[in-house]
Amino acid sequence: MEITVTVNGREVTRDVEPRLLLTHFLRDHLRLTGTHWGCDTTTCGACTVRLDGVPVKSCTVLAVMADGARVDTVEGLAAGMAETDLDPVQQGFVACHGLQCGFCTPGMLMTTRALLDRDPDPSPATIREAISGQICRCTGYENIVRAVRWAAEAEQQAATTTEVAR
């Protein structure tokens, strides 16, 4: 069946099987391979994207269920290709060594971006809770927590600077 999804701000229309998982729609049909997958049981969260702004595990959403919805993936996070175009959470992950193999990273970025949108000053415990549906096998999570704090502080600082400039 034909579906129309707004992916990273761009409207795309494709003909898909009802059983196609949103992960495969993004990866195989749109070639947005930044969204990974790591399990079959809705456990690991490597496939996390935002569906109408809400972080969800895309391996457990049918592509047809996203018809008419907005889907945001890691490819849409940065404003451009320059280092300064990176979203603060992306910058935080780089600055704090919040990634190693990079496989869980896109999902972690989408969840923590959503967290900061909702709670701009999360405590470490809040950050840990927010990513508790996602597995990272490399970092032991510590530097992911630091990365998100880094991003929160960077955004607060930027907001303060803007406030002062006004």
Partner: peptide, 28 residues
């Protein structure tokens, strides 16, 4: 996060630029 050292020391990883953008290239 700001400076690249001449030799040893903490520096941002060169590979991260692609990973945080979802531009890694894994087998799948």
């Amino acid at each position: 996060a700001v400076d690249t050292p001449r030799g040893y020391g903490a520096m941002k990883r060169k590979e991260d630029a692609r990973f945080v953008r979802g531009r890694g290239n894994y087998v799948d």
